[in-house]
């Protein structure tokens, strides 16, 4: 599916080109002088960075600094911004991206399995076996037939995070993936984010929780945006 109205300049590279281009050098995402205003307040301005394959980017900042808005802009959900945004992916952004929002995206009346199987049907990755494996990977084996309403907040979050164990999405955009889950869960998700990056994926997430000293950071606050990649080069 090639959406001509995609406003993110998301020109698909052909497969031939891809084999010749080292994706980690090109940058999957180029952001140029991005700025956003909401309700009369400048959330951030002049944000520029290039994110490549294998990167983990953390968006940090105080409450109301625009972290969620930034992720929604990157995911193509929020269109009122200044500046330029360019995704360079082998397929369209929507085909390549896994977006987990601030809200879990689950209907309480349905079971985890029903919720996930609808989402994977939309993304063309429908395999019930894979979904069961993903659910048991986040420690929800045996809960797949219970309505989501009966689960705890942490378990709901885990249901949403189970999609990290489904293949086929090089770009992950995750809004507060670590909220409400316990220490074990945090370690589990952390490991999954790392292995995704190690396999050449791109992770952009918001959290106060820094994954490691080498994580690249976007620090938002007071209408400004700072990039912190001080330690990134050293660790890589």
């Amino acid at each position: 599916m090639n959406d001509p109205n995609d406003r993110h300049g998301n020109a698909p590279l052909s497969q031939v080109e891809l084999s010749q281009v080292d994706l980690s050098q090109v940058g999957l995402l180029q952001v140029d002088a991005l700025g956003c205003e909401r309700d009369d307040r400048t959330l951030f301005a002049g944000l520029s960075f290039t994110a490549g394959a294998g990167d983990i980017w953390q968006v940090a900042g105080p409450n109301g600094a625009g972290k969620t808005t930034l992720l929604r802009i990157l995911a193509g959900l929020f269109g009122f911004y200044d500046g330029r945004l360019r995704w360079q992916l082998p397929a369209t952004l929507r085909e390549s991206m896994l977006y987990l929002g601030h809200r879990a995206g689950l209907r309480e009346e349905l079971t985890p399995l029903e919720n996930l199987s609808w989402l994977s049907a939309l993304h063309g990755q429908k395999q019930d076996a894979a979904l069961m494996a993903a659910l048991s990977a986040v420690g929800l084996g045996g809960f797949e037939d219970l309505p989501v309403a009966h689960l705890s907040a942490g378990q709901k979050r885990r249901v949403a995070l189970a999609r990290l164990w489904l293949p086929g999405k090089p770009v992950w955009i995750l809004d507060e993936p670590f909220t409400a889950i316990d220490a074990d869960g945090v370690a589990l998700v952390e490991a999954q984010l790392r292995s995704h990056a190690a396999a050449g994926g791109l992770v952009i997430y918001t959290s106060h929780h820094q994954l490691a000293a080498d994580t690249r950071q976007i620090l938002l606050g007071q209408g400004e945006a700072r990039i912190n990649t001080a330690h990134a080069g050293a660790a890589a």
């Binding site: 599916m1 929604r72 995911a75 193509g76 959900l77 369209t92 929507r94 085909e95 991206m97 977006y99 929002g101 601030h102 809200r103 879990a104 995206g105 689950l106 209907r107 309480e108 989402l119 939309l122 993304h123 063309g124």
Partner: peptide, 18 residues
């Protein structure tokens, strides 16, 4: 409305379907 409140609507909008 319920889809919007639960974040399902966002998932629908980012999904690679028409």
């Amino acid at each position: 409305r319920t889809d919007e409140e639960t974040g399902v609507l966002d998932q629908l909008l980012v999904a690679p379907v028409e």
